[in-house]
Design a protein around this nucleic acid. Structure first.
Length: 473
RNA sequence: GCGCCCUUCGUCUAUCGGUUAGGACGACAGCCUUUCACGUUGUAAAGACGGGUUCGACUCCCGUAGGGCGCGCCA
């Protein structure tokens, strides 16, 4: 019987949940679910200056939207400071840590000097072996971890492989600030230990921290959790993710009309693979997810591919489900609330009816929303440029001819309307497009729309004839 | 500067010493078609470079180049 898997996602609440964090959360989530384990959520808010409630809310909201659920309550790291201090004290007592009286200014000077002399930038160990009697009066010391100076610290990482750090390259890090508050590396180790975390999955930017943390685990004689450091996500240009590229909060992706399921699928495919599988359900992801299948090279974020995937999800979703997605999307969409206000029962029905035709040509919920705009347009419709062109090129005349044809149509549904118009086109030796495009322009104000006979059917006889008449004169 | 890591089509990736180096997105071309899409068929497109090891390297080793991450009393 193996130990139950416990993973954790540990964001720092200094901003929204960005796309890299979302993927890290997804990997933690998928791995824990794959193993019937748990994923805990810990808010790393030990930096009181920069942590905000708004950021915490944004992160929880983003995860919820993405469908990434965590087990138990979110843990505030700050609330555990007393415990962190306790461990710092133990380290001090066991000789694995010491007081350091260097001021921040001295440290800055030390770094500047090292940089100028092109030496490695590290704490020089001034207070490592100095007796307490040397302590200057009135200076509150920090506690530094006494990092081993010889030998190696080895990380056996599921994604990165065996990574070796020479201990001489790892300096004595501060574990307790002069104000008595713990710093990141100490807190993480203590919390992961206390929370029973068995597997740590986080970004490679933590790889050096992994080495330092490994040393702290060793000093405390605690077992080191299984580690996986996943490569970062870069912008399309290979450089750091910038705002205009993809370093947006997940709520921005919601506003852009992406479906959570599509985003999950896309994110999973960035840095992780299961053979040639591209499109898979979340259930399949959970079933297939192995840490060893995570790659080690960074990936670039590709909106075109996300769009394509999203379109696939939209097209394959049932009309009712998609309608619901659209409804929950609208409050977050530009112009969405206004559209929502116009949505009475009749419009809801029309919208549902139009869903099949609409979803076929929408890659995002934004496009779906825009595609449905004709349903809500007020007469007389405003024509876009291409629609105007169609009307100018004999469109008006075509509409005038069609009015009696449509009026004569007994059954107002797509098949019979199509049959009637086609018969007329044939009789007049006209290409169907010559009639369809003017119809489309008059009914939607645009040159593109769902199949025109569906549009007629959705709009209904009265509204359709009114819109056509508006433009036929 | 020091340390660690990365490098297969434009992009995401498959390959775990022997393949005509596969798939997907994107691009281009054709088909389908009432528009736009969808769908479909096809085309172009890759092992950074240089050395080894080996009967045989994309795959293992070394070096070079390029890129990323880290080096806070941030996380």
């Amino acid at each position: 019987m193996s130990v139950p898997v416990v993973t954790r996602f540990a964001p720092s609440p200094t901003g929204y949940l960005h796309i890299g964090g979302a993927r890290t959360a997804l990997f933690n989530w998928a791995f824990s679910r794959h193993n019937d384990g748990k994923m805990l959520l810990r808010i790393e808010d030990t930096d009181r200056e920069r942590s905000t409630q708004a950021a915490i809310a944004a992160i929880l909201d983003g995860m919820t939207w993405l469908g990434l659920t965590w087990d138990g309550d979110a843990v505030s790291q700050h609330s555990r400071a007393a415990r962190h201090r306790e461990v710092a004290g133990q380290l001090l007592a066991s000789g694995h840590a010491y007081h350091c009286y260097c001021s921040p200014q001295e440290l800055d000077a030390m770094r500047a000097r090292a940089e100028a002399e092109k030496r490695p930038i590290r704490y020089d160990g001034t207070w490592r072996d100095r007796p307490p009697s040397d302590a200057p009066a009135g200076v509150k010391p920090v506690i530094r971890f006494k990092s081993p100076q010889e030998g190696e610290t080895i990380i056996n990482d599921n994604a990165q492989g065996r990574v070796v750090f020479a201990n001489k390259d790892l300096d004595d890090l501060i574990i307790l600030r002069s104000d008595g508050n713990p710093t990141y590396n100490l807190s993480v180790v203590v919390d992961d230990r206390d929370m029973g975390v068995t597997h740590i999955v986080r970004g490679v930017d933590h790889l050096t921290n992994a080495a330092r943390q490994t040393q702290i685990y060793a000093a405390m004689d605690w077992p080191v959790p299984d580690m996986t450091h996943v490569p970062l996500i870069h912008g399309p240009d290979g450089a750091k993710l910038s705002k205009r590229h993809g370093a947006l909060g997940v709520e921005a992706y919601r506003a852009m009309g992406y479906l959570p399921a599509a985003l999950r699928n896309y994110l999973a495919r960035l840095g992780w693979s299961h053979g040639d599988d591209e499109i898979f359900t979340t259930e399949q992801l959970v079933k297939w997810f192995e840490l060893s299948s995570i790659g080690k090279s960074p990936a670039r974020f590709d909106f075109a591919k996300l769009q394509n995937l999203n379109g696939h999800y939209i097209r394959n979703m049932g009309d009712d489900d998609l309608f619901q997605e659209l409804m929950s999307f609208l409050p977050h969409a530009e112009g969405g609330p206004a559209l929502l206000a116009k949505l009475d029962d009749a419009k809801r029905e029309q919208l549902k009816m139009a869903m099949a035709g609409l979803k076929e040509r929408a890659k995002t919920l934004v496009e779906l929303k825009n595609g449905a705009a004709f349903l809500f347009a007020a007469r007389p419709l405003t024509m876009d440029d291409k629609a105007k062109q169609v009307m100018a090129d004999g469109g008006k005349a075509a509409l005038a001819e069609l009015i009696p044809v449509l009026t004569a149509c007994a059954d107002w549904n797509a098949p019979s309307l199509e049959a009637a118009v086609k018969a007329y086109a044939e009789a007049q030796a006209l290409k169907l497009g010559k009639l369809a495009q003017p119809l489309r322009a008059s009914l939607t104000g645009s040159s593109t729309s769902p199949p025109i006979f569906d549009v007629l059917a959705v709009l209904g006889r009265e509204e359709s004839m009114a819109r056509i008449s508006d433009m036929a004169v």
